[in-house]
Amino acid sequence: MSTSLPDVPGSASVFGITVRWSDLDAYAHVNNVQYLRLLEEARVYAFKEWFGQGRDVIDEGMLVVSQAIDYLLPMEFAYAPARVAVWCGGVAGASFELGYAVAGPEGDDTVYARGRVTLVAYDLREQRPRRLGAEEREALAAVSGPAVVLRSDRAVGGGARGAAS
């Protein structure tokens, strides 16, 4: 899929994610909570692409520890899938940050929302965070780009954020 979306790094992976009729709100726009589903689905596809088909890092333990979204414009229903770009915006010891841009279907390069999700690698057996391994770091480096700066970051005088720890 096209990665020529505004402010999306060339290293990003872009996935077509279906917007369902039931995702719309009373105003015929995609409901804000449904954007989290779009990000989640793109993340699942990205992990398979980035970490390999023979490995399931979700089953091994990856937990979402924070999510933030800027809703930029209302997105309406389209029969063609929305495009969700995802990339790594920073890596720390046990965690990493993903950046997202949610755009319309092919031909509509409008970015309707931007998001940021922080995940932590987690040892399910020991029930505690674990450090990211060399293979995971290498895979994330291949899809790295600038961290997403959201409105709330600018409001507190932050500018670009650093990676999560």
Rank of each mutant, 00 (worst) to 15 (best):
L98Y: 02
D109H: 14
M75C: 08
Q67W: 02
V57L: 15
A142T: 06
E106K: 15
A142C: 01
E40A: 12
V149A: 03
W50I: 05
G52T: 14
E60P: 13
K48E: 07
V120H: 04
A92T: 01
I69V: 15
A101I: 01
D70H: 05
V143R: 14
R114V: 05
E40I: 00
A80Q: 15
D70A: 00
Y45H: 15
A134K: 13
A142F: 00
R116P: 02
R151P: 07
R130P: 06
A42V: 11
L119E: 02
L140Q: 11
D109I: 11
V84G: 03
A103M: 12
T118S: 05
L98I: 04
R116M: 07
R137L: 00
G133T: 14
A82I: 11
L72E: 05
M62Y: 09
F96G: 04
A139R: 09
A68I: 01
E76R: 15
W87S: 02
Y45A: 13
G61M: 05
Q67H: 04
A113K: 01
P81Y: 13
Q127K: 10
V143G: 00
Q53P: 04
L63A: 11
P105I: 11
W87I: 08
K48M: 04
V120D: 07
D108P: 14
A142G: 13
L140R: 10
V120Y: 08
G52Y: 05
E97H: 01
P81C: 03
G93R: 14
A68D: 07
E49G: 06
L150N: 04
F47W: 14
A42F: 08
A85W: 06
E40L: 03
R116I: 00
S144M: 09
P81M: 14
L140E: 03
G115Y: 07
A142H: 06
A92V: 02
D108S: 11
V86K: 05
V57T: 11
R83H: 05
D70F: 01
P105Y: 02
E138S: 12
D108E: 12
G54Q: 13
L98Q: 08
R131L: 04
E41G: 06
L124P: 09
Y122W: 15
G104M: 14
P146Q: 08
S152I: 07
R131Q: 14
E76F: 13
F77E: 03
G104N: 14
V57C: 08
V117D: 01
A139V: 06
E106F: 06
D123M: 05
Q127H: 05
Q67V: 09
S95K: 12
L39S: 06
D56I: 08
V65K: 00
S95I: 04
V91C: 03
G107F: 12
R83T: 12
W87Y: 09
V149K: 04
Q53M: 09
R137I: 10
Y112I: 04
A85K: 10
I58G: 10
P74E: 00
E136D: 13
V117Y: 01
E97T: 08
E76G: 12
R125A: 13
E126C: 01
Y71W: 10
L140F: 06
P146K: 02
V44W: 11
G89V: 01
L150T: 10
D123E: 13
S152E: 09
V148P: 02
Y45F: 15
T110M: 02
L63H: 13
G145F: 01
L140I: 10
A121V: 07
G93E: 07
G61Y: 07
F77H: 14
F51P: 08
P146L: 00
